[in-house]
Design a protein around this nucleic acid. Structure first.
Length: 245
DNA sequence: TTGATTTGACCGGA
DNA sequence: TCCGGTCAAATCAA
């Protein structure tokens, strides 16, 4: 137990170190090198423990009573509701029904938008590792070329797999996605509130590209050593994940 | 009786 | 200190 705590502290401090280095690097980066700065930001957020898989979508219902439309085919259990500052309607918190039986940590947040009472903001967090995720994926397999995203709520039940905005029976699902898909070590990201959210290392969806070079990312060469440092530490941290791939 | 929902309390991060 | 997220006891519904 003490040992575990020690390891956890080490991991935490190493993560903090990587994050700090990424930020420092970003600060020193030439403002023109947007790609490199984005990379630093991505690196910083990817090691952030809060950086879970996050998918945001908007769901329109046909009437105020039409809450069935919010059903995504997966079984959720409501565990809380909260009034949000500045928001007209409370936010509801759901987690996977199989959280305890199968250790599924997927959660979602549903909030009615202020402007349109028929429009709901639905934010999916985490990855479904329970059986129903596979069943849902079978019902609606991913499109060709679709990424092997751990959390794919659009695979579920009545919800559509694509395109980003699909309307069925009065339901509009708008999956907010970023067209840039810029970085090497993540296959999926969504624009959430104006920033990229990345699949965390814990989702095993993270891999480094060995042919990455500072030059190709538009990074000044005098930052190369810093990058080397950063990647050395990060690679060490992700090593078990990489081996599991 | 069992599983889901409600709601006030609690906790941690900024 | 405030606010968002989660917990857990009480309550409800099938």
């Amino acid at each position: 137990m003490v040992e575990l705590r020690g390891e956890r502290q080490t991991l935490t401090s190493e993560l903090a170190q990587v994050r700090a280095m990424a930020r420092e690097l970003e600060a020193k980066m030439d403002p023109d090198k947007a790609a490199a700065r984005e990379l630093c930001r991505a690196l910083s957020s990817s090691v952030d423990r809060k950086g879970m898989a996050k998918v945001r979508r908007q769901v329109r219902v046909t009437s105020v009573q039409d809450m069935v439309s919010l059903d995504d085919g997966l079984s959720w259990r409501k565990y809380g509701q909260k009034d949000i500052l500045g928001a007209k309607y409370p936010r509801a918190y759901f987690r996977c029904t199989h959280r305890h039986t199968q250790g599924c940590n997927a959660t979602k947040q549903v909030q009615r938008t202020d402007g349109d009472p028929l429009l709901f903001d639905v934010v999916y967090l985490g990855e479904h590792i329970c059986g129903q995720a596979a069943a849902a994926a079978q019902r609606a397999p991913p499109l060709a070329g679709a990424e092997p995203v751990p959390m794919q709520p659009q695979h579920a039940g009545q919800e559509q797999s694509s395109p980003p905005a699909v309307e069925t029976e009065g339901i509009t699902h708008q999956v907010v996605e970023d067209p840039m898909a810029p970085f090497l070590f993540t296959s999926t990201q969504d624009v959430v509130d104006g920033y990229f959210s990345f699949i965390s290392p814990a989702n095993s969806d993270c891999q480094f590209s060995s042919d990455f070079s500072a030059g190709s990312a538009g990074v000044d060469m005098d930052h190369e050593a810093r990058f080397d440092d950063l990647f050395l530490i990060t690679s060490e941290f992700f090593q078990p994940e990489i081996q599991n791939l």
